[in-house]
């Protein structure tokens, strides 16, 4: 380590500190002389990570000419994007309608998911249903729902209700049932036990315990999680149209394919704006309901 560079004539404090150094070095060997094995391990992990990156670049067939060519084209697109424009008035109406549709998809999808996941969360929480088999099965069930992306669910629902925003609502609902189920059950498991014990001790049965001890504690947490997901679903709902499930995504992907860059820029700005608004609104609501900023999510 470098000694501190310019300071004036070494003061008494400095000499004192330097005198203590050997003693400190003996007292904290790991800091002054880290074990070579640990160093080697760190280096090996870094080398492995970098090696895997190189392998990935090679395996995925990146070439400099493609990268440079692409960057040049991107620059072109960006210059074409300025100034953003919505084209004709008729298109503006179309875009705003699609935006409303996007919001509606996110809102209904989140709401329905919350409604369905509410009982699921209780079923999957180990302190509500003590049966281990039920617990494991419901957790695995929720995990497999979650592992399938919203867009894949959208494709599946399109087969059922046809193209359009309704399929988007159902897709967001399905994939969020998995997420909410997991979050709700974890929230339930982390609750303060005292309230439940009190209800049981004064003669309440299982349902009384859920109604009077668990639900009052867990509702604010659920609410804040639902709002948080509404925010992130607004983002998902903007892209769900790419596969034909309604919202602004289908228009966006069309404009990109048609090289209508000013309109692409307008749509992206529209998305940014709406997401920012929803963020603001939902964080206000969340604050007013739970009275604090942070509720943890995993």
């Amino acid at each position: 380590m470098k000694p501190a560079s310019p300071p004036a004539p070494p003061g008494a404090l400095r000499t004192q500190a330097l005198e203590q150094r050997p003693a400190l070095a003996i007292a904290y060997p790991q800091i002054f002389a880290p074990s070579p094995w640990r160093r080697l391990l760190t280096l090996a992990i870094i080398a492995g990570a970098l090696g895997l990156m190189v392998f990935a670049v090679w395996e995925l067939d990146f070439s400099w000419s493609r990268i440079w060519g692409g960057i040049g084209k991107l620059g072109d697109f960006v210059t074409h994007m300025i100034p953003p424009s919505y084209g004709t008035e008729a298109r503006l109406v179309l875009y705003l309608k699609a935006l409303g549709e996007t919001l509606a998809i996110a809102f209904l999808g989140t709401l329905l998911a919350a409604l369905f996941a509410f009982p699921m969360g209780f079923l999957a929480a180990s302190n509500v249903v003590a049966n281990r088999l039920v617990h494991i099965l419901s957790r695995r069930f929720l995990d497999s729902i979650r592992a399938v992306d919203t867009l894949i669910w959208a494709l599946i629902w399109i087969n059922v209700v046809g193209l359009g925003p309704f399929a988007g609502v159902l897709a967001i609902m399905t994939s969020d049932i998995g997420a909410f189920g997991k979050l709700f059950s974890e929230a339930l498991e982390n609750l303060d036990r005292k309230a439940s014990e009190g209800v049981v001790a004064s003669g309440g049965n299982g349902l009384h315990r859920i109604r009077f001890a668990l639900i009052p504690q867990v509702i604010p947490i659920f609410f804040s999680q639902v709002l948080y997901y509404f925010e992130s679903n607004t983002r998902s709902a903007t892209i769900i149209g790419i596969v034909g499930a309604g919202g602004i995504g289908s228009l966006l992907s069309e404009r990109i394919r048609e090289n209508e860059w000013p309109e692409v820029a307008f749509l992206v700005l529209l998305i940014l704006l709406i997401v920012a608004i929803i963020d603001q609104v939902s964080s206000r609501l969340r604050l007013s309901v739970i009275g604090q900023r942070n509720v943890t999510f995993s």
Binding site: R235, T238, I242, L252, V264, V268, I271, L272, V275
Partner: peptide
């Protein structure tokens, strides 16, 4: 904020 799929499309 811009969804990754939008970047991917571009």
């Amino acid at each position: 904020t811009v969804p990754e799929l939008v970047f991917a499309l571009i």
